[in-house]
Design a protein around this nucleic acid. Structure first.
Lengths: 361, 361
DNA sequence: CTGAAAGCGCTAACAC
DNA sequence: GTGTTAGCGCTTTCAG
């Protein structure tokens, strides 16, 4: 113990934590002793003794931290929390409900100060007891089911409706729509918004061009190819999230530059665990330029902004993931500050960004 | 205490933690009592009592979690750790050394099991005492200075050299190079590699076209515009990371689709805190199509793969951030497993992906 | 299989 | 300014 090395006893606590009065000289002595021994305060023990919730940890559960949507959400959240002395601890659920449950337990056992979750579970009744006297929850992107809790959501329905209207206004009627896991509420809302606009326009058979459960870029690419191969091919496409839009762009295959393109290796080099698949994908990806004739004239609008969306000229329904994170942080901070009012629900707007992929030709 | 609600005392511990022998019936009784009270084990207290390092937390410090490079690194790291029962706690330093120091202290005080850090600090001698009997460190992306520790790095020099050679082979001699913060070792290595190739080719004045400290997309875009406005304008560009490449693409302004593009709002809607700037940027971004004539024929190769790099046809020096994360996890796990051999240094390869931006015309 | 006591590292509350 | 005592919630002994 640093106390022995110094001369005093557990007044070292005061010196190192900077709380309470300590003589300047004593403080210096303790400090240097601690430095020499490589000693540091044990924050865990401190939080235990302090009782209640003194932790400075806030948990975030999301499907996949590598998805720009979630990483930007995390970034906004983290920055806002940090300004209030809190730290973010993140975990990916891989959209697996069982893992989400396990990770939630784990974070709660760790007595996090609060929990922000983009849930992949079908219902959240099991958290009711927790919520009564535990850490506050904030749901992001997807609302709680069977539980009242704060939530920050997107206007999915409105955004999707706007996307469909935009395509309809430009004369399209056979519009393909490719979606994520069909069990996700965000997906359902987007399909609903789309349906609303289509039916209002008198297009009853829009479901013929609906493809769901395209959860990753490769699946999306295949889905889009399948759609474009239909006999009366769709003249336009609505892709309901960033990964799907990426897949669609690969399928449609813009090659903005000269075609002297011997891009043998695709960028999907991250998939080191699925070698066979990678090679095959590389081949199909490579043929994009060749196939492009099929979907080249197809109009496209996607939900979620893309990193190079402006450069590529992709029309999108955009929103602000970082803002979502900041909002979640603010709701959480309010709860930590004692706010025990009714659950709040914030719905963030989306907006249409019209670019070349839906330009009139 | 659940003990009271049940009938036994702190045998509840055994029941809930599942360690030691407990009658099946007793266990069930305790369980239901705990459920009802919304009680959960306090992992913090457990770890304290257990002494030493029993925590399951691993910290990651990086510059900016929203940067795809770091978020993919985090993703690979998190997945690998999770397979071994460990959890990831992340924090962004915003490339601010002072914050990095503070966050490091904070994580260490929390007795994380290990620390993975993409450091922004100039030296790390202060961690020497820590390393002796504290948690192991793994440096990623940037090597430790004044400290021996495990590290997973990229072949920055080789990759940059390859990029330069690629451009030189295609006849370019006036090659602009735009880099990140000049104090970062990754930047320096990349410039060195570039320099090596240029000097070997007899281009002595390459520094005339070097612009540094373009740390964000906007700065990069401006830097590239400035470069292209030089009198003998460069015929090719090497951008040394993903953000800079993005900025360059905006500046060069490919508009792959028809120019009926009224993209009034740029995608930089995230910058709600800098309204004035945003509007201005939007304007300049918007004029990309107009200005494009200036740099349209300019060859471009970037360090780091881009999300839509294949669709856009951007040549890059690619590598695998997720793999870097997995490697870091493995080094850390080995240390936790008792490995006390000399510090390891893993250097991951890069590879050239040749696409249309460097195609011969 | 279950219980009682002690103590992990720290800090609240009081002394001195 | 500083020291003392007790106890946060748990798990470790070591006994029943």
């Amino acid at each position: 113990m640093a106390a022995l090395s110094g001369v005093s006893v557990k007044t070292a606590s005061r010196a190192l934590s900077g709380e309470g009065y300590v003589a300047v000289e004593t403080k210096a002595r303790v400090q240097s002793a601690a430095d020499e021994l490589g000693y540091r305060l044990n924050r865990t023990a401190r939080e235990l003794r302090r009782g209640g919730n003194t932790s400075t940890l806030v948990g975030l559960l999301s499907g996949d931290l590598a998805n720009p949507f979630y990483s930007r959400l995390a970034s906004g959240l983290e920055r806002e929390l940090r300004m209030h002395g809190l730290q973010l601890i993140t975990a990916s659920t891989d959209e697996n409900p069982e893992w989400e449950r396990r990770l939630t337990d784990s974070l709660l056992e760790r007595r996090v100060r609060g929990l922000v979750v983009a849930s992949t579970m079908a219902e959240h009744g099991h958290l009711a007891a927790e919520r009564r006297h535990g850490s506050p929850f904030v749901f992001v992107d997807r609302p709680p089911v069977d539980l009242t809790a704060d939530a920050v959501l997107l206007d999915n329905r409105g955004g999707a409706k706007r996307a469909a209207e935009h395509l309809l206004e430009r004369g399209h009627r056979r519009i393909g729509i490719v979606g994520d896991l069909s069990r996700l509420s965000t997906h359902q809302d987007r399909v609903e918004g789309f349906a609303e606009a289509m039916e209002a326009a008198g297009v009853a058979d829009w479901r013929d061009y609906l493809l769901e459960d395209a959860h990753d870029v490769d699946k999306a690419e295949r889905a889009v190819r399948a759609l474009l191969a239909r006999d009366p091919a769709p003249t336009a496409l609505f892709t309901t999230n960033n990964r799907i839009t990426t897949g669609a762009l690969r399928a449609i295959g813009h090659t903005p530059f000269a075609a002297t393109n011997k891009d043998a290796a695709t960028h999907r080099d991250t998939a080191t665990h699925r070698n066979a698949a990678t090679d095959k994908d590389a081949a199909t990806g490579n043929s994009a330029a060749g196939n492009s004739a099929a979907g080249k004239g197809t109009a496209l609008i996607g939900f979620d902004e893309l990193d190079l969306g402006d450069v590529l000229g992709v029309s999108v329904i955009a929103h602000d993931p970082e803002e979502m994170g900041r909002h979640a942080a603010r709701l959480l901070l309010a709860r930590l500050d004692g706010d025990d009012g009714p659950a709040r629900r914030v719905v963030l707007p989306t907006r249409l960004i019209e670019r070349s992929t839906t330009a009139l030709t």
